[in-house]
């Protein structure tokens, strides 16, 4: 008799996972890269397109962060610190999720998909291969949109910024999001009790990949040949 009861509990868990519902609604649409058709293809053009796209994505992602339950209650300084630490992880996770349906290609935007050859031309082969390693991990797991939105919020809350003023408030935010992930997995994947843990265990590779990306774009910035918008520059400098 325990089984049907468990099932009822399971269904109510799904219905009650308000955090997931809020995050699904808050999830921004993809934006277009719109590479300039009048400029001939080159590494500079590819990087200019990506930096412009990243700048616009960042504006959208800051708007998204404000919808995470509990995030707006943090002090402005702590909101800034979390975003300054996690912004690249958030950008990369969105590219990863968009790329799950393709083989060895990264969907930076609906109109900007990079294959191996394009990655090589842009000098991004190593970086893109690391991002593809993440894509592969999530493909194997069959990452769902609900899990993706939770994981992205967890990456933000768990960004290990050294500048946090109210660490207890940030811990509470982490607990809420972690709890939502556990509840979701208990309800949706009772056959795999370790699924939440498996998802959390992808975060070190995300952190490592983001650090590599920031380092790469910092050296591109120093090189000075690729124009970059202010928000992107501001966040690169925060690292």
């Amino acid at each position: 008799n325990a089984l049907p009861q468990k099932k009822i509990l399971t269904v109510s868990h799904v219905l009650e996972n308000k955090v997931v519902s809020v995050l699904l609604v808050a999830e921004p649409e993809g934006i277009f890269a719109m590479p300039d058709p009048t400029v001939p293809e080159s590494d500079i053009k590819a990087l200019t397109t990506l930096c412009d796209l990243a700048d616009r994505e960042l504006v959208v992602n800051i708007g998204w962060a404000k919808h995470i339950p509990g995030f707006p209650s943090l002090s402005l300084a702590d909101q800034m610190s979390l975003l300054q630490s996690a912004w690249m992880e958030i950008l990369i996770l969105r590219v990863v999720f968009r790329s799950l349906g393709l083989e060895d290609k990264l969907v930076y935007a609906e109109d900007y998909v990079m294959d191996e050859e394009q990655s090589r031309l842009a000098g991004l082969l190593d970086l893109n291969n690391t991002i593809l390693q993440l894509v592969k991990k999530f493909k194997v797991m069959g990452l769902e949109k609900e899990e993706f939105v939770l994981l992205k919020a967890i990456a933000l809350a768990n960004s290990d910024s050294m500048q946090i003023e109210d660490t207890e408030a940030v811990q509470r935010l982490q607990d809420v999001l972690h709890g939502a992930l556990q509840d979701y997995e208990t309800a949706r994947h009772p056959e795999d009790p370790r699924r939440a843990g498996k998802l959390i265990m992808t975060l070190p590779l995300l952190r490592q990949t983001a650090a590599r990306a920031v380092q790469h774009f910092c050296s591109i910035k120093q090189d000075g040949r690729v124009p970059m918008h202010k928000l992107f520059l501001e966040l690169l400098e925060a690292k």
Binding site: V59, V60, I62, G63, A65, K66, L76, A77, Q79, M80, L83, Q84, K230, L231, E234, L235, E237, A238
Partner: peptide
């Protein structure tokens, strides 16, 4: 904080990102 003016503004601003 002065160094991170745009992030600060975007977080304080209540308009949606599309309006900026």
């Amino acid at each position: 904080k002065e160094k991170h003016k745009i992030l600060h503004q975007l977080l304080q601003n209540n308009t949606s990102p599309g309006d900026l």
